[in-house]
Every structure is written in structure tokens, then in C-alpha cells.
């Protein structure tokens, strides 16, 4: 029985990670073949970094991820503060509205946004699908995730501490920055990292909303697969996989540290 569960475990992780492992291995292949492994080399990595199209789309991807994550974090945090201070029925309504984009299929979000952009663009001269529309789309789909990661921190906070700061002579905005923000900062950072990763990861929404001038990396890779196959994709995907992995590890460490801290304070209160 024990053996069986081990085999089962092995199979699950095998199926999950085998493709990625193969991809990583072949990214170091010196030949173009997908079946023969010649020798270990960085050839495809070299070619990758000489490919202007890929580098440009990487730049677009990173830029849009950073900017959209920043904007979404700011808007989402403020929204969370607002929602947190609402009365119960209104709060529930807002949370539901907030959750719809999260569960909504990406393709629906993508197409509906595209239709909206096209609707606006055809009515105003000089506007075009491009980096602007891409950024707006990314900010929009990132906001709910930021709200979801900040709200629990607000709920767990002693709401009197804001009053206490006011009470000690601190003006409202300063009180918020000095007392509330440090308390919910872990949630804000987690929200930012999540928004950044989701934005980097996104294909469907970018595909429909970027136009031809501002293609993100996933969109570029997709168009590359339609042309004769190049192992550059392997190298690129490997790099992407490792970056996202690192980010995930950071998020997880942060979260588990937060849980430990919460447990400690709970214990103290019981005592």
C-alpha cells in the first residue's frame, strides 16, 4: 500500500513535470533536433539574446507587468480599504462584483475588453490598439487579486489603531500611511507579486488587446510556434519558468511566515 502510494505520487509529479524537464534539457541541446540530443551548449540562449523581436517583446512584457502591478496594487489597496469599511450587505455585494472577473473565463474578459476598446477607438481619431490598451487591460484584470490579498489583512487589524493615531495628533492621511499601511504591507506586497506574475503569465488577454505594436512575450512565442520550430523557444520558456518559480517561492515563504506570526499572536491572546 505504501509502495503503491509512492508510485502514484511519482506518476502524478512525473506527468506534471516531465514536459518541463524535457523542455529544459532540450534548451541546452547543441542541435536543432527535437529528438537527438547532441551535446550540452548555450547555443539557443545565445541566439535568443540576439533576437530583437523576442527581446522587444520581453521588454514589453516586463514593462507592462511592472506598471500594471504597480497601478493595480495602488488602486486595489485603496479599494480594499473602502470595501473593508462598508456595512455588511454592501460589502458582500462589492466582494461578489470583485470576484466575478476572477472566476470569469479569460477569453470572455479578453474579448469583451477588446470590443470595448474597438468601440472607443473607432469613435476617437488618433487612437490605436497598442501598449495603452494592453496596460489598461492588465491593470483591470489584476485589481481583483490585489483586493483579495489585502482585505484579509485589513480584517485582521485592530481597527482602533487608526483612531489611536488620530488621537495622538496625527492627521488622517498620515495616520493611514504610518499605522494602517505597515499593518497591511504583507498583503500589499503579496498582491503586487501576484499581479506581476499574472500579468507576465497572461496570454489570452494580451493576445486580444495588444494590437500589432506591443506584443508581449507569450504572444510572440505563440506566433513563433506557427513558423518553423526554433529551440530558442525552449531556452526562452526555461528562463520564464525559472523566474516564475522564484517569484512563487518568495510568495510562499512570505505567506507561511505570516501564518506563523499570526499563530504566535493568537497564542499570546489566549494566554
Amino acid at each position: 500500500m505504501k509502495l503503491l502510494s509512492k508510485v502514484y505520487n511519482f506518476l502524478v509529479f512525473g506527468f506534471l513535470y516531465a514536459p518541463i524537464a524535457v523542455m529544459i534539457v532540450y534548451s541546452f541541446n547543441s542541435e536543432k533536433s527535437r529528438t537527438n540530443f547532441g551535446s550540452f551548449s548555450f547555443r539557443w540562449y545565445q541566439e535568443l539574446f540576439n533576437d530583437d523581436i523576442i527581446l522587444k517583446s520581453l521588454y514589453v512584457s516586463l514593462l507592462v507587468a511592472v506598471l500594471s502591478a504597480l497601478a493595480a496594487t495602488l488602486i486595489g489597496t485603496l479599494a480594499a480599504v473602502g470595501i473593508d469599511s462598508m456595512k455588511a450587505p454592501l460589502k458582500r455585494a462589492y466582494l461578489m462584483v470583485n470576484n466575478i472577473p476572477v472566476v470569469n473565463p479569460d477569453i470572455v474578459t479578453a474579448v469583451s475588453m477588446m470590443i470595448l476598446f474597438v468601440f472607443v477607438i473607432t469613435r476617437i481619431n488618433g487612437l490605436n490598439m497598442g501598449f495603452g490598451t494592453l496596460l489598461i487591460a492588465h491593470i483591470t484584470f489584476n485589481i481583483p487579486y490585489v483586493i483579495l490579498s489585502v482585505l484579509p489583512k485589513l480584517r485582521g487589524m485592530n481597527s482602533n489603531i487608526y483612531d489611536a493615531a488620530l488621537d495622538l495628533g496625527c492627521p488622517p492621511l498620515k495616520s493611514f500611511m504610518k499605522v494602517v499601511v505597515p499593518e497591511i504591507l504583507p498583503g500589499i506586497i503579496t498582491g503586487f507579486i501576484m499581479a506581476f506574475t499574472l500579468s507576465l503569465d497572461d496570454f489570452v488577454i494580451s493576445y486580444f488587446n495588444s494590437g500589432s505594436t506591443a506584443q508581449t512575450l507569450p504572444v510572440t512565442i505563440y506566433s513563433m510556434t506557427k513558423r518553423p520550430y526554433s529551440p530558442k523557444i525552449n531556452a526562452l520558456s526555461t528562463l520564464l519558468f525559472i523566474s516564475v518559480m522564484l517569484l512563487l517561492v518568495v510568495v510562499n515563504i512570505r505567506q507561511s511566515a505570516g501564518v506563523k506570526k499570526d499563530k504566535k499572536t493568537i497564542k499570546k491572546e489566549v494566554r
Partner: peptide, 12 residues
């Protein structure tokens, strides 16, 4: 100035 119920110290 107020002493709040449950103290309301700044945890950070």
C-alpha cells in the same frame, strides 16, 4: 487623548 479598549498599540 484616549486609552482604547484592547489598547490599540501599534504592532509594528
Amino acid at each position: 487623548n484616549t486609552i482604547f479598549q484592547r489598547y490599540a498599540l501599534f504592532p509594528h
